[in-house]
Design a protein around this nucleic acid. Structure first.
Lengths: 346, 346
DNA sequence: GCCGTCTCAAAAATCGATTTACGCGAAGAC
DNA sequence: GTCTTCGCGTAAATCGATTTTTGAGACGGC
């Protein structure tokens, strides 16, 4: 509790017998300084445990060494995994992150982004909670570089990172078709989200190519606990129920598992399941869950790279990066007959 | 891309025909201002989309409306859930959070805390990555209020929040004893952590009271994937292997599940399992996992409350808050004989 | 009617790091 | 030998919000 005030650059300068400008130049590697003086400055700085005051530094330079991140939820491992990836990427480049959750609400999203912008961060990485991304106007005015991630349908004109949702869902569908599944149910979180709609399209396209009718699509919401109630009616009739389910998000995947168990259905005996996102529990689960893995680390790294580009040249052309997903085949899917997949025609 | 510079308080003042001091007083609710003027100021501020520059504000006042959070990992849902809880708590009080991961490394922890402190945050909430918490010295000097969470063995003299680990583990042990399990294996992450040692003690105490020998304790590390290899030797012999396992962290729980499945052991038929922490996947899992639930939301809220206390009166007595955990009985544990629990003697 | 008091806004000082403008001395050019 | 760079360091101005100080006007008391 030795609450003497933190040392300032002035303290360091005085003690080293130089001016504050010199200290600033040494510490910021800005202008050539006599090595002798530089050494003394560094020594004194270390001795006093001197830390640059970020507020003062930022006020003068106008930019903060901080990246603001806004995601729909901090309780969803997809988003926190993404944040972790960004944190790893900005580490060592001297940036810190401030994070905030929009609670999947456009009004809150706007408010949170507005608050973040008052830090005048070097950049903003946002996973919009809807396709509309109405906060767009805010970022335009502020001139802070922005990268949108994952839900990027409505965000023309800014850099973005996402996955190829159609291809990813197609991967899942073709896997089930290859195992002979014809009756496929898609368990979607919310069709208001463009990425979810794209995944539905991917499944639809794969089925159409195989000469099958469009899949049933059930909307189960963003939280896990209500899924069983919504899903049960679709799973009760043994004759007409789907043999394969594609769950389009991690919470949907949990919901399907839980609903199936409640109804006494065994995966994969009674029901084959392909999930989305890839977590430790999917591997530890019995059976391990076949899932489409989104390259979380790649997304995070790429978001930071694109943001750096925008920081370096704000006038440059915005870029869109699209990652592919991989299917991790495990044991929650099983073959029930000859392949229905539309094979290569060659 | 209308990159005109953001409006300053001076712009607002000029346009409203008042001084910057008046604008500051209106916006900060600081001193009585003529309602007429106040109204005009607010109108102009709204019109210009004016946002206070936090750097300038902070430089002048010396304190930032920001809470720094340092946790061992952002990939562990326990810590991110905790962060989510804090974010909810500080929301609406005008604070933002900056978060950082120490990667379970003391050196990095110190570096990250040092970096956080250069923001001169209103407070720091830290989950130390070891009992030693050597970064303690930093926070002492800076005078920034600190609250330590979860791993608080070595941190006397500062406020802290934790759970009653002994009691929590005892809950798990008594549950298994009540179901007739005598051979109990404890699956611990790392015995270098005091909270883990306390949990071991809790199990030991419960067994001792029931007149049973001390449990076997296996150290499985902090990540999930190596657990099966470490655990297998303890699970192969059907005669001598434990009938009940207590996994002391969420990753250990995943590891046990995965190891059991690899060995063809069915939970709970061959093995009863009590996990730690409580997540959606434990409910969705087949069988649903019996687990000791740590009150994540309570921990987060409490950490913020204690921090607020320290901010308000830095000289006050540090407080330690200890929460209780609850056992969520699900289906991963089963009875194998008469209760062995030391019942109430009355 | 004069003076003291009180209210509230304007003016000015301040926070600490950065950066511009300037000055001094040494090195190089003719 | 004088004049011009050039290198490097210092003093001072600056960023924008807050806070202290100053001052103008209103009001009340005697």
């Amino acid at each position: 509790m030795v609450s003497r005030r933190a040392p300032t650059m002035r303290d360091v300068a005085l003690r080293a017998g130089v001016s504050t400008a010199t200290v600033s130049n040494v510490l910021g590697n800005r202008k050539a300084v006599d090595p002798e003086l530089a050494k003394r400055v560094l020594e004194v700085a270390a001795e006093l445990d001197y830390q640059i005051d970020r507020a003062a530094s930022q006020l003068r330079t106008g930019r903060a060494a901080v990246v603001a991140i806004v995601v729909p939820s901090l309780d969803n491992p997809f988003f926190t995994g993404f944040i972790a990836a960004i944190e790893r990427a900005v580490q060592g480049e001297g940036y810190d992150i401030i994070v905030s959750s929009s609670n999947s609400d456009e009004v809150q999203e706007r408010a949170r982004i507005s608050a973040m912008l008052s830090w005048r961060p070097a950049g903003l990485i946002v996973v919009p909670c809807s396709d509309a991304f109405p906060a767009r106007s805010l970022t335009d005015v502020s001139g802070v570089p922005v990268v949108a991630v994952d839900r990027i349908a409505g965000v023309g004109g800014i850099s973005s990172v996402s996955v190829n949702n159609r291809a990813a869902a197609r991967l899942a569908a073709e896997h089930l078709l290859g195992l002979g599944h014809a009756r496929i149910l898609v368990c979607a979180s919310s069709l208001l989200l463009a990425n979810i709609r794209e995944r539905c399209d991917g499944v639809r396209a794969a089925l159409a190519e195989a000469g099958l009718p469009a899949p049933a699509i059930v909307e189960v919401g963003l939280t896990f606990d209500i899924v069983p109630a919504i899903l049960s009616p679709h799973l009760i009739s043994p004759d007409r129920r789907a043999t394969g389910i594609i769950a389009l998000t991690n919470t949907a995947t949990l919901g399907v598992l839980s609903a199936a168990r409640d109804l006494g259905l065994v995966v994969p005996r009674d029901l084959s399941l392909v999930g989305f996102d890839d977590y430790a529990w999917m591997i530890a689960s019995t059976p391990p869950i076949t899932a489409v893995r989104q390259p979380l680390d790649g997304l995070g790294t790429a978001a930071w790279e694109l943001l750096k580009q925008r920081i370096a040249s704000p006038a440059g052309e915005p870029q869109r990066l699209i990652f592919s997903c991989q299917l991790e085949v495990r044991r929650s899917t099983r073959s029930i007959g000859p392949s229905l997949a539309a094979g290569p025609s060659a």
